[in-house]
């Protein structure tokens, strides 16, 4: 694909697995694990797509997403949300905060790749 993805995830094993999968698929992968500084990472890396975990240390994924949507520079940035809670309420929260896509852990590697392609494809068409 050749796009840039910023992975914001605090669980090191998951981060490592996803970095491996995405890299193998041709993505340029940046990783970040702290909620408080996640926004800076987005501005600095300027990714094509963001994979954002909800439960992060110091700041929740929802808050980060809300700020992204509030900033004109990142308002349209495709964001794939990941959560391990998996209740209906969590999906609603993600949608309300402006997630482009939402996935519940655990997921298959193919699912992640398909989702990211879908997100970028859609963006590309626009």
């Amino acid at each position: 694909m050749g796009g840039t993805v910023l992975l914001i995830e605090d669980e090191p094993n998951i981060m490592e697995a996803m970095r491996f999968i995405l890299s193998r698929d041709g993505w340029h992968v940046h990783c970040h694990s702290d909620g408080a500084t996640a926004l800076d990472a987005v501005r600095q890396r300027d990714p094509d797509v963001v994979v954002l975990d909800v439960m992060l240390p110091n700041r929740s994924g929802y808050d980060i997403l809300r700020d992204l949507r509030g900033d004109p520079a990142t308002a349209a940035l495709p964001v794939l949300m990941l959560t391990a809670r998996g209740q209906k309420r969590d999906r609603e929260m993600a949608e309300r905060h402006g997630a482009s896509l939402f996935m519940t852990k655990p997921f298959s590697n193919a699912e992640v790749l398909d989702s990211l392609r879908h997100l970028l494809g859609r963006e590309g068409a626009a």
């Binding site: 094993n13 998951i14 697995a17 391990a84 809670r85 998996g86 852990k105 655990p106 590697n109």
Partner: peptide, 20 residues
């Protein structure tokens, strides 16, 4: 919700690495 989180997180790693 907490239990769900605590169970799903290790399962995510297991699934991802075992698929790899």
């Amino acid at each position: 919700s907490q239990i769900s989180h605590e169970l799903r997180t290790p399962m995510t790693s297991i699934r991802a690495f075992s698929e790899i």
